[in-house]
């Protein structure tokens, strides 16, 4: 009966990690800083959005609707509409932001949303210019 001494003893080296600091991110308390380029939720700079519906056209998931905003933000908006995104459809491929002619539609690095009602996932992109800013 040959005993594999190395095979028996070497796994025991794992016990040494008992006193190492855990690698866990205790999430709700400590948040990992997500890099700026991350494809999170949408933001839309309404001052420059021209309502051209390019985003609506390229979206393969049919996730973007053009709707009227509560007030007029941009006088040059050709259709008077702004995009609203259905987060029951979106796949965060960022094709819509790639084609946006004025570059107003962007993806933020905020990306968590949990809700108890599945009807609450129609998302109006927050109106601010740069990623990471608070909504004005």
């Amino acid at each position: 009966m040959a005993i594999d001494v190395k095979g028996v003893l070497s796994p025991l080296s794992a016990i040494g990690t008992l006193f190492e600091h855990p690698r866990t991110l205790t999430y709700p308390e400590v948040k990992k800083d997500i890099p700026i380029g991350y494809r999170g939720f949408h933001i839309n700079n309404l001052e420059t959005c021209v309502g051209c519906a390019s985003c609506e056209e390229i979206c393969m998931n049919d996730a973007i609707d053009m709707i009227h905003p509560d007030k007029e933000y941009n006088v040059k908006n050709t259709s008077g509409c702004i995009p609203r995104i259905d987060y029951g459809r979106c796949c965060w491929c960022s094709l819509c932001t790639d084609v946006c002619p004025p570059g107003s539609l962007k993806l933020d690095n905020i990306c968590t949303h949990a809700d108890c009602d599945p009807d609450n996932f129609l998302y109006m992109p927050k109106n601010h210019k740069n990623i990471g800013e608070e909504a004005s």
Binding site: I15, L18, F19, P22, R23, T24, T26
Partner: peptide, 10 residues
């Protein structure tokens, strides 16, 4: 807990 610590978590 001890298992978790060895596994690198809390």
């Amino acid at each position: 807990n001890i298992t978790a610590r060895i596994q690198g978590r809390y």
